[in-house]
Each structure stands twice: as C-alpha cells, then as structure tokens.
Design a protein around this nucleic acid. Sequence first.
DNA 1: GTCTATAGCAGGATAGAC
DNA 2: GTCTATCCTGCTATAGAC
Lengths: 216, 216
Amino acid sequence: MTKNETTENTRERILDEAEILFARRGYQAVSIREIIQAAHCNLAAVNYHFGQKKNLYLEVFRSRLIPRAKRVQAAFWESLHKETSHSVDTIVRTLTEAFIHGPLTEEERYLHNQLMAREQAEPSEALELIIREVMQPFFTEIAHLLHQVLPEKVEKDTLRLSLLSMFSQILYFSFARAAVTRITGREYDDDFKAILADHIVRFCLHGLGTVRREDK
Amino acid sequence: MTKNETTENTRERILDEAEILFARRGYQAVSIREIIQAAHCNLAAVNYHFGQKKNLYLEVFRSRLIPRAKRVQAAFWESLHKETSHSVDTIVRTLTEAFIHGPLTEEERYLHNQLMAREQAEPSEALELIIREVMQPFFTEIAHLLHQVLPEKVEKDTLRLSLLSMFSQILYFSFARAAVTRITGREYDDDFKAILADHIVRFCLHGLGTVRREDK
DNA sequence: GTCTATAGCAGGATAGAC
DNA sequence: GTCTATCCTGCTATAGAC
C-alpha cells in the first residue's frame, strides 16, 4: 500500500499522480482516466476539484513544481551563506550542487526537470508561471551576485547567456538520461552522478572565463 | 498554393507535414487527421503508405531527420577541411557554426532540434535510430579528432561529457526559444543569433579548458 | 494509389444519486 | 466530496469502390 492510498485527501493524491504522469509522458499523452487509476479515485473527482484537465495541469505547476523550485533556490542561498568566501568558484559550485544534489530526492528532481524541459520545448500557460515565479527572479539575483564578484565586469547580457548555458546542461543531463547513458556507456549511479556534477561545475567555471588552464 | 500541394507525391507530402506537426507538438498530440489536412490528402492514404501512425513517425526520422543530420555533419567536415589549422579553437568554432548556421534553413533547424529534444526527453524506438545512425558515430569521430589536438591528453570520458555539454547548449538555445527570449529580452533575429553562436563557441572553448583568461 | 464510409473504441466532460 | 452512469466528440484503423 502506497502512502497515497489513504494518508492524503483525494485532491492531493490526484495532484501527486498527475505530476508523475505529466512529467513522464506529457500533457496530451496522459488521460484523466490514467490519473484517477493511479490516484485510486473516480473520474468525476478530477472535474469536481479542477474543472477541466488543463486546470489540473496548471495546478500541478502552482502547487507542486513552483514551491519545489523555490525550495531548491532557498537551499542554494542557505548553502552559500555557510561559505566563507563568495568567489565565482564558490557560487558556481554551490549553484550546481543545489540543482544536482540539493534538497530534492532523485525522483523529485527527475519529475521537476522533465516538466521544465517539456514546458520550455512546448510552452503552455504554465511557462509564463515558471518564468515569472521561478526563472526571472532567480536569474536576476544570481546575475547581480556574480556581477559583483566577477574579476572583469562582464556584461549583464553575457552573464545571462552563461547562466542559461549552465542550466541547459543541468537540464540536459537530467532529461536526456537515455541518450547520455548510451553515449557515455555509464549508468546513472552515485559514482557517475558525482562525475557529472564535477564536470558541469568545471565546464561552467571555465565557461565563465574565470579559470586559467594552469589553475586546475 | 504551397509547393506541397502539387509538386510531390502524396507519400512525400504526408512525411513533410507530419514532421512539422510532430516537431511542434509531439507524437501523441498530433492526430492523423491534422496531418492529412495539412498534406491535402485522405485519411486512408496514411494507412496505405505507412500502415499505422507509429510507422509514419519512425519514417519521418528515417527519411527526413537522419539524412538531414548527416548533411550537417558533412557540412562540418567540409568546412573543417577548408581550414588551414585544425586547432581546438577551429574545431569547436566550426562545429558550433555547422549546427547553428550550417546548411539548414532556420525552419529545418527548428524542426530538427525539436524532434531531437523530444526523443531524448521521452525516448521511443526513434531514439535508437538517432543514437546509432547520428550521435554515436559522430561523437566517436569528434572525440577522436579532439583527442589528437588537445594540448593535454584529456580523458576520452571527459571529452564525451564536454561534447554533450556543448550539444546540450546548441539544443537548448534552439528548443527553449520562448524561455530564452523572456530571460534575455531578445528576439531571435540575425543579430541575436550571431551573439548566441559567439557565446556558445566561447563558453565551450573555455569549458574544454584550452583557453586562458588572458587570451581573449 | 486515392477515395468514401464506417467500425470500434477511448477521450473529456456532465448529470444526478448518495 | 465521492460515486455510477452516460453523452458526445474525435481518434485509429479497415473495408471496399474507383
């Protein structure tokens, strides 16, 4: 018996299962009937709580994805404040760690990145939410932070592109697991995940142009 | 009247329109009825030529995406052979240029990257084709090439991760246009596309660890 | 090779009992 | 708030005329 069968009310169970299914297979590919089967409830319950399928999808973002994204961001700031130096190195490393390890479980991170990738590849109303509530504020804060500590004052536009490059890798190594596994010949075990995190940190630190070849 | 209404046979028109629709909205979200409407033919024609929807989807990859990917790769090798020096800088620049400008039209590149991103995020039988015919051979060739010219002999595993980091950016800046536009405040005009290409080249060159800060 | 017509089923959404 | 029963639309796939 999963915890979802009894410990939460129907509305929450529907949201939990809907998120898993939408993340794995996308909005259109998932039927309400599949969701209610996973949530052990009735078809009409979805329409009672959410009106229509589209609203259920949006509610997954409002009540699940966005709060979770904010948890990751909060974990980053907390980790950063524990650091003594706020060098570019520290910031990039802390940032990558927050998104690659951070407060989420493996399963949560997978769901999260799948939904993020899907919305960016094929925007719906949810993308507007994500950008306004999650991406826009965080990018502004991080760009501001980095701008202060970067040795040469890099242009803000360049900085934003670099941050996008960084997140594109974090996203890619999460959502394209199958391809990455085939190309590298490595399974996503703890060992490989540590290698990946190191790689992304190193690649982005160099990409930001603050590390000389001789330093490492 | 578009060229597709008369100049090609039904089978080719179906494939052309199917690719556009699958790229934009994904396999499940596109109905055969939409495809035949765009291809100006009858419902039964799809089943006559391809048997079932899934085969039509796979045929899009076999007859459209894979040959096009090989054209891009061929264009890369051709550009590279025109270069006098085969430094890491030249290779990375030529590689990025081939995928960001290269032989494809803007529309083709968009379709291509959408389909690539979709398959990697949610693999079907088509991913196996893509990996075997497109990614695996190209990655092996490029890794071999770079391994020869990199100043320090970087491990092959690290090199593959760096190449994946590079392609993740090329892919991201193509499929996540809406988000990139919102974050950067820039439309995808020729000016911005040139900036993007420069950014990716610079970021990846540094990421490969072959450029010192002072060099640029 | 392309068409019309239709079988057969799955989807979202609602009505109304409890 | 959750259920059963049902409506109706739109889907894939096939049969068979031309």
